[in-house]
Design a protein around this nucleic acid. Structure first.
Length: 227
DNA sequence: ACCCAGGGTCATA
DNA sequence: TATGACCATGGG
């Protein structure tokens, strides 16, 4: 089955997802860290706490007392870990000159630098690249791996990088969009990767219904036909 | 009382 | 390099 076909079916079933849920690049980056292995509803509470404490800014987080920051992040779980990770990230972010500087970096350099920040792994880095910086990077998560494996597109033990390369190459080939800076093809790829990842998450969290149903409906997490 | 969630790091073999 | 432990809250 073509990867683009899967996308069309997911879109037909679930519609546009309007990701990333959040206001502005920095809030998106914060959300990307906070949502690590955590339900988004919990992240929303933590972000609300940060806003209410006037602490949803890089300077505030970078200089904040870790105990205080942890208290604000408590609803998101792993709050001690995430307080340290957020602070590491914000200090790095400010050292590099913030968004206006980082947005000038080529994608490969930006990705490599993000992966060097303590607490930023492949998925968090790619969330940031795609949703905060608008780069054509396909985000892989546990849902993506399970979906691709169950459809028989790839082996189940493929590495993160291999899976990302698979989706990016397949989608570039099947759409014919070219990935060159400043081109319409680049922007289309960004929109496609954005919506695709969001749809995989939405689909995986959805419950399989008799009607209406999409052609990949039996791959939802809670579908009785799968487990 | 379970299980899981839009991961990542670290210690161990 | 490949597992396992650990982090922790909130909803089903």
């Amino acid at each position: 089955m073509r990867v683009l076909t899967v996308y069309r079916r997911l879109y037909a079933c679930h519609g546009p997802q309007h990701w990333w849920p959040g206001d502005g690049p920095f809030e998106i980056m914060v959300g990307a860290v906070l949502t690590q292995n955590t339900a988004w509803s919990n992240v929303e509470r933590a972000i609300a706490n940060l806003k209410a404490a006037a602490c949803l800014e890089p300077e505030a987080i970078a200089t904040c007392d870790l105990r205080h920051l942890g208290a604000l992040l408590r609803p998101a779980g792993y709050f001690n870990v995430k307080a340290r990770r957020l602070q590491h990230f914000c200090r790095w972010y400010l050292e590099q000159g913030g968004y206006e500087r980082l947005r000038r970096w080529p994608t490969a350099r930006l990705r490599f630098a993000l992966l060097g920040v303590h607490g930023i792994g492949p998925e968090t880095a790619d969330d940031i690249l795609l949703y905060a910086f608008g780069r054509p990077v396909f985000v892989v998560d546990a849902y993506t791996r399970r979906l691709a494996a169950r459809l028989g597109l790839v082996a189940g033990d493929l590495s993160y990088e291999a899976l990302r390369a698979y989706f990016e190459q397949a989608l570039r080939r099947e759409t014919g969009y070219e990935d060159r800076p400043g081109t319409a093809g680049r922007r289309r790829l960004v929109r496609l990767y954005n919506e695709y990842h969001a749809l995989i998450v939405a689909h995986s969290k959805s419950v399989c219904r008799p009607r209406p149903r999409c052609s990949v409906c039996c791959l939802a997490r809670h579908c009785p036909a799968v487990s």
